[in-house]
Design a binder for these strands. Sequence first.
DNA 1: TCCATTCTAGAATGCTCGTTCTAAAAAAGA
DNA 2: TCTTTTTTAGAACGAGCATTCTAGAATGGA
Lengths: 193, 193
Amino acid sequence: MARNKEFDEKAVLKKAMELFWKQGYEKTSMQDLVNHMGIHRRSIYDTFGDKYSLFLASLKSYEVFVAEELTKIISNSSTLKIAIRNIFEYVVNLAELEIYPAGCFAVNTAVELSLLDKDIQHLTTKMFNDTEELFNKLLKEGQNKGELKNDLNTQVTAQFLHNNLIGLRVLVKTKYTKKDLESIIDLILKVLE
Amino acid sequence: MARNKEFDEKAVLKKAMELFWKQGYEKTSMQDLVNHMGIHRRSIYDTFGDKYSLFLASLKSYEVFVAEELTKIISNSSTLKIAIRNIFEYVVNLAELEIYPAGCFAVNTAVELSLLDKDIQHLTTKMFNDTEELFNKLLKEGQNKGELKNDLNTQVTAQFLHNNLIGLRVLVKTKYTKKDLESIIDLILKVLE
DNA sequence: TCCATTCTAGAATGCTCGTTCTAAAAAAGA
DNA sequence: TCTTTTTTAGAACGAGCATTCTAGAATGGA
C-alpha cells in the first residue's frame, strides 16, 4: 500500500477558512493559501479541488465552527436571556481579541458574492436562516420557562435579533468603540423586556 | 485653445459608482469600467487617476447620492416617524426596483476593505457616523415637535436604528422576502413607541 | 526490495490584471 | 490654417493570477 496523508485535512481547511474570512474570496490568492495552509499547492488541489471549491468548503467549515461556538456560549449561560446577550457580547468581544478576524465570514460572503453567485446566495441565506432558527428556539424555550412574555412573536423577534447581529458584525470592522456597540446591545435586548 | 471635454465627469463617475457598488472593488476590472463608463481607458486615467482613486471618488459620489435621496425622502414625509419608516422602506424597495444594485455601497466597502485599508476604514466610519447623525437629528426634531417621548436617548437610538439599517442592507442581498423584511421593520420601529 | 501513493520543490502555462504607450482623428480658438 | 488639447482605437508591458506539470523524495505495506 501507499503512504498516508501527513496533514490534518480539518486543520488545513481551518487555516484556509481563516484567510478567506479575513480577506474575502477575491483578495485571497492561491499563493496566499499555499503560504498560510502550510501544505503544497498540489496537495491543496488534490484534496479540495479548485479555489472556488476550497472556498465553499471553508464556508461550510465556518458554519460548523460557529455552531460549536454558539453551543458553548449557550450551555455556559444560566438563563436564556443571558444566553442571547452572551451571543451578542461574543461578536463584539471576538473582534477585540483578534484571535479570529473581526466580522462574520457568512456576512462577508453574502455581501461580496451573493449578488453575483446564486449558489453562494443560497448557502448564505441558509446560514442566516439557521442562526434565526437558533434565536427562535432560544426565545421559545425562554417563554416555556417563564423568562419571556408569551405575547412575543418569537419568529419575528428572532429575525430582528439576527438583523441586529448582522449589523454589529459589520460595525466591528469599522472604528466604532466597544462602548458604542455595548449600548446598542442594551437597546436591542429591550425587545425582550 | 484646445478641444473641450466631451463627457460629463459626474455622469461617468456615477457609472463607475454603480459598477463598484454592484461588484465591489476586486471583482471590478478596468476593462469592466471602460465598457460601462463608455469613455476611453486613457480618459479614465487622465480624469480620475488610477483604479483606487476612481474607487474613492465613486464612494464619495455615493455619499452625495445617498444624502440627496434621504433628503428627498424626508421632505416628502409628513411626520418624522414616517420619515424614519420611509428610510427603512426605501432600502427594502430599492432592492426590488433593480434600478440600483441591492445593498449599500458603504456597507459593502466596509465589509470588503476596511480591515485591510485604513483610509477606507476611516471613510466608511465617517459615512456611518453621518447616517447616525441624520437619525439623531430626526429623533431630536421628533421630540421637539412632541411626536416622540423625551426620555428617549436619541444618540443611542440613532445608533440602534442605523445598526438595523445595516442589517437590512445585508439581508436584501440574500433570498429574504420583502414580507420578512417588512415585519422586521415594524419591530425595529417599536423602539419609537 | 518493489510498488503504489503522497509528499515536496518549483517551473511552466495561459490568461487577466492595471497601467502606459503609440498614433491618429476631432474640436476649438488664434 | 495652425496649434493645442482631448478624444479615440488598440497594442504593449510587466506583474500576478489559477492551474497544471515535471521530477524526485518519502512512506508504508506486499
